[in-house]
Design a protein around this nucleic acid. Structure first.
Lengths: 130, 130
DNA sequence: ATAAGTAATCGGAATGATTACTAATATAAG
DNA sequence: CTTATATTAGTAATCATTCCGATTACTTAT
């Protein structure tokens, strides 16, 4: 019998969410830097609120850059590209392959919940410089 | 004019490679624990040799578990599943979608080098327990 | 065989992301 | 307003990974 946690609305949580919605694939550090200018804010608070927002399904954690988790507002599932040069993460204009989970699960014996596809390459800006 | 680095064969490097080939998707820490029983070995040496072996194309780094890089002998490109419960990483029996890179690059303006697909779910053993 | 040049090693310190902890604060409900 | 407890700030701790300086050990040429 676990007690139900009743979430409270706090300015810090709303500011974190706002930063994510305005920004693009921000890291916890970047979010902290934006939000700490507008309100008193500690690092732990950023991380805790990111976990809560993910749990509530309001944002998603993006793992395209292996060195750092990035966060994005929740839209329909999609894929990402990580630019080798500038390190930024971009959305890829492909829709989610629903069939992939079913197909991959069937033959293999794994119970598949979801998948992510991460592309590696160069973004348009970095191609120009090269 | 960059000087060519001439690699030397060392017992540490061979032991790292051997551990990877015998094991399955080991982390740097796990490799260290195996190899340090057989020879004098420091952490930095494990990491340096992992980088070298990846560079030489003899092993690959697998990013399916976001919290830690794992290493695998180099086979034909394939995909991985990260079990939510036990945390292990498994090979998925699917062959690499060569077309995906071409298709995704064409429309988007990105120059795509490669992609990875990571599945999340439960491995057969963990399904039984649940 | 010896010396020179340099790749590789050890061991530990440094870094960077993330998590954990504690006392103080703030919110929702009665 | 009071109470219960979710949330916070601030800091310490953890964990993976990288970096660095001194030493060791291959390799090649003498």
């Amino acid at each position: 019998m676990k007690r139900e946690i009743v979430r409270r609305s706090t300015s810090q949580r709303e500011l974190v969410l706002e930063a994510i919605c305005k920004g693009n694939h921000l890291s916890a550090r970047e979010i902290f830097e934006i939000v700490s200018k507008k309100a008193r804010m500690s690092f732990g608070t950023v991380y805790r609120n990111l976990q809560i927002l993910v749990e509530e399904g309001r944002i998603i954690a993006v793992e395209a850059d292996p060195s750092v988790l990035r966060y994005d507002r929740r839209l329909s599932s999609h894929y990402h590209l990580h630019c080798k040069k500038c390190g930024k993460v971009f959305d890829m204009p492909l829709s989610y392959y629903n069939d992939l989970d079913k197909n991959a699960g069937g033959a293999s014996g794994f119970l598949i919940e979801s998948h992510t596809i991460s592309f590696k390459g160069l973004c348009p800006d970095c191609q120009k410089e090269a």
